[in-house]
């Protein structure tokens, strides 16, 4: 590193700068998208979506019995790692501003924190939907290849409606990660919380429902995971949508609102 060779005033000379006009949300979103790729961890997290989709497809091709070589099998196999990775991406997009302390710069360049958080949410949802479409594509290739290799007819047993439910289910899971990132604002803490939220709580709920009749009737209304699970069965009744709405309000919307309110007023240091 060499020092002291430049004219000290070079920082302020001559550069024509745009007249200050408000930073559009589209620009914040584009920058946030870039930030989700530009670190090694971020890059590999995103790359792992494609990688695990290919691995899952390969696993079905190798090990699934011929009778199971249908699109639904591929979609389910690919969907499983996706349901874990996407929420992690959402968690880290929020928490890294605190855990890595880059928020000091982010929130001085854009002092309206709600705009940054909104941009992050848009990026997380966009990445989630794009990943799901990619996964469906990889699954479709696997389905065609698998049935050709096995010499069985290609079965397209998941229609676009079903795929739509799966996308919605994954976006909700991703938003749970986003919510926990917002509330906890610490990478390790939020990731642990996510696993408690989506694996420990549902187990407790199931045990309780098995033992207690009164809870069994209540479960669809207050167990968000249960209500989300209904999306993956391929059809939704009006009552099931109501379950999803009520449980989602309790476990996602309300804590997200609290988390956002805290985040707006918190110190960034």
């Amino acid at each position: 590193m060499t020092t002291t060779t430049l004219a000290p005033a070079a920082g302020r000379t001559g550069t024509p700068k745009p007249a200050p006009s408000p930073i559009p949300l589209s620009r914040i979103t584009a920058v946030e998208l870039r930030k989700s790729f530009d670190t090694r961890s971020g890059f590999w997290l995103l790359a792992s979506i494609g990688i695990t989709a290919v691995l899952a497809t390969g696993a079905v091709l190798l090990w699934a019995p011929d009778s199971e070589l249908t699109y639904d099998t591929f979609a389910a196999a690919i969907g499983f790692p996706m349901a874990v990775i996407l929420p992690m991406i959402a968690v880290l997009s929020v928490t890294s501003e605190w855990s890595q302390r880059s928020g000091l710069t982010t929130f001085t360049l854009v002092p309206h924190r709600s705009r940054v958080i909104l941009a992050k949410a848009l990026v997380a949802i966009g990445v989630g939907v794009a990943s799901m479409l990619l996964a469906f594509g990889i699954g479709a290739i696997g389905n065609i290849a698998g049935s050709a290799i096995a010499g069985v007819p290609t079965v397209w047993d998941d229609g676009f409606g079903v795929l739509g439910y799966i996308v919605l289910g994954n976006v909700l899971g991703l938003l749970v990660g986003f919510m926990l990132g917002t509330v906890i604002r610490n990478s390790a803490g939020a990731i642990v919380a996510y696993f408690v939220y989506s694996f420990v709580l549902p187990t407790l709920s199931m045990l309780l429902a098995n033992g207690q009749q009164w809870f069994r009737d209540l479960q669809p209304w207050i167990d968000f995971n249960f209500a989300q699970g209904q999306l993956f069965n391929g059809s939704m009744s009006g009552e099931q949508w109501a379950h999803l709405g009520v449980a989602g309000t309790i476990w996602l919307v309300a804590p997200l609102a609290v988390g956002l309110a805290m985040l707006m007023r918190s110190e960034v240091k």
């Binding site: 200050p20 930073i23 880059s102 000091l104 001085t108």
Partner: peptide, 30 residues
């Protein structure tokens, strides 16, 4: 301020950056 970075240059803590970004990338993001 509509675009604060054009009016106020701020350096509060030089270590408060994502350790996994390169120096150039940090400037590019800004």
């Amino acid at each position: 301020l509509p675009n604060p970075g054009l009016e106020v240059g701020v350096l509060l803590d030089a270590s408060a950056q994502h350790a996994g970004r390169t120096g150039r990338e940090i400037l590019t993001v800004a």
